[in-house]
Design a protein around this nucleic acid. Structure first.
Lengths: 187, 187, 187, 187
DNA sequence: TATGAATGAGTCTTCATTCAT
DNA sequence: AATGAATGAAGACTCATTCAT
């Protein structure tokens, strides 16, 4: 089906571009198992492909945030839900990191701002409810979260980490950081 | 002086390329305050520039690891030393992440392997001495470390985090992760 | 057909480069009736084009020498055969003269050495059999031969000599020189 | 003396450019034993240098033709005089051949046309006086003359011919060609 | 739909030239 | 006068894109 084809191309593109930001259209087409012509029919122009990838990434991330239901229940548990939901989005996030934020569809900026706000708000809630430490800013926690998610995705694709350990790896780093005062450790 | 100029170009290049992996030679030159031709005089060809940047990154990182003296003293304290030493290297590491590992000078592979081994060995030591948790592999800890360091560097350059908080931000995430069982938290 | 195109480009390149050693890729492409990019598709890089041209020249010249069957029959008649065979090679030889011998494919040096040897040997045979004068060295006769052939080709392309007179022009200069003592003239 | 310096640069430039048409200004300066700055002071711009070289070549060639006094005495003897006079001009002629006639000072075209006319006229005179064969056009004889002169110069600089044999080599090829019917030979 | 040919546009690279020491 | 630094201008090269098969 055409939709499948489209999705397949998007996934393959994300995978490849996350690794090789400068990959040529030829290589992208090959990695998706289609011809250049087909690639061009689905996404007329490299620009278009990148924009669509970013939009898809934003949509997937928004969906993940929504699914995680960050406003409900204990914040530490919500973090785990968020990580779980982000697993399938991770390759797309990695791609964006690689592209250096140069791509930007029209409505995308606001979407990412919204996502950023959602996460920031969530971390702030955790702090206000006394579940998260106060020593780190919500902004940095958000950045660190994205960083660990994309890094885990990268480590998995490099074979340095088992695919099934994604949630564990991110969670086992992030949760202690969120809930444990560093002073407790040093002391 | 010529050496100064060279160093200035390298720094500017690292800064810019970390943000825009596809930055044109024009922009790189401009960011360093010289003309394209001058940039080419110092580093003949984009390839050369990237290779040199990678070599410099490897050298700086090796030096940082050496300075941190990872084999001595309590592992948690050594981690802090390592983070401190890495602060100035971070922009170069960020650059490498962006380039997707496509660059590689001749002797560099072994250098990075050595660095990787040093860090992996260090995290393993911490685990064996009971100072670090056993729930995460040394390989992932190494990746997570690099991830947080580069991310913090990026957040600072984006103005999302104060420059003086570099060590604190990375440490306050990494140390709890290294020393606290996640089960303790969930429970 | 692709092969035709390739040959057409080679011929046009030889023609043009023989006249304008520094011709730009633009002009070469234009003279072949294709775009720069297409020219680059067939011959990636100016270097490659020149190397291929030299190889083709060497092959053509070797074939011409072989066809002339220099070892058989009266030497003066063989010279005429050689000139006839060289007519189509002449533009390529002219090109090489212009490039100043800077181009050199890997196996080409030996090929040219072989051609040089063949001609030198031929002229020596003529001398030993008493058909050619002894007052000029085989080496110079070889050089003079190449010189006249390329010059005739040039004169024709400049419209100073009729194309059909190629063999006559070269032969009528070379044959008397080979067979007549200068002393006979002066005297 | 300044004039000496200038002449030395011109000679070295002619020598080098005859061999390497694309030689860089750096190399030209080095071959003349002066610095780039000095080269630029004497000849502001590559264009200028080439134009001057062409002018000098034309002047020298005109002088050679004048010295040979082509209108006087037996034509065959005049040819020898011409060759003798051309020996020192040969490197400059070789240079022009290499540059593909792209250079052209303002007054130069007429100068070369004049030279060409002088030689053509001379060969025609020889033919009309029955001293030269009628089977070759004056235009081709002129071209062949230049060809042999430059070729001999090249062979000498390559070490394939002894420097002292210049006149002999050119004369022993050209004179028989001018005075002997090819039909006499074949027959 | 896939493939090969062709090209325009944009980037990279080089070199002649000037300036300062 | 010579050398090293710097640059504008010009050319080489690559790649995304289109077309024809």
């Amino acid at each position: 089906m055409a939709e499948d084809q489209r999705a397949r191309i998007l996934d393959a593109s994300a995978q490849l571009l996350a690794r090789q930001p400068n990959a040529r259209m030829d290589d992208i087409a090959k990695s998706a198992g289609v011809s250049r012509a087909t690639l061009h029919r689905y996404f007329p122009g490299r620009e278009t492909l990148l924009v669509v990838l970013e939009q898809v990434a934003a949509e997937k991330m928004q969906a993940a945030v929504a699914m995680a239901d960050l406003a409900s229940g204990p914040a530490p548990v919500a973090v785990i839900r968020l990580i779980e939901e982000c697993e399938s989005v991770a390759p797309y996030l990695a791609l964006l990191y690689q592209q250096g934020g140069e791509v930007s569809a029209d409505g995308s900026y606001s979407r990412w701002a919204e996502i950023d706000t959602d996460l920031t708000t969530f971390f702030r809630r955790g702090q206000q409810q006394g579940e998260f430490v106060l020593t780190l800013t919500p902004a940095w926690l958000t950045d660190a979260f994205f960083s660990l998610v994309t890094s885990a995705s990268w480590s998995i694709s490099e074979g340095r980490v088992a695919a099934r350990d994604f949630v564990h790896c991110v969670g086992a780093v992030l949760l202690p950081a969120l809930t444990t005062e560093r002073s407790e450790i040093i002391a």
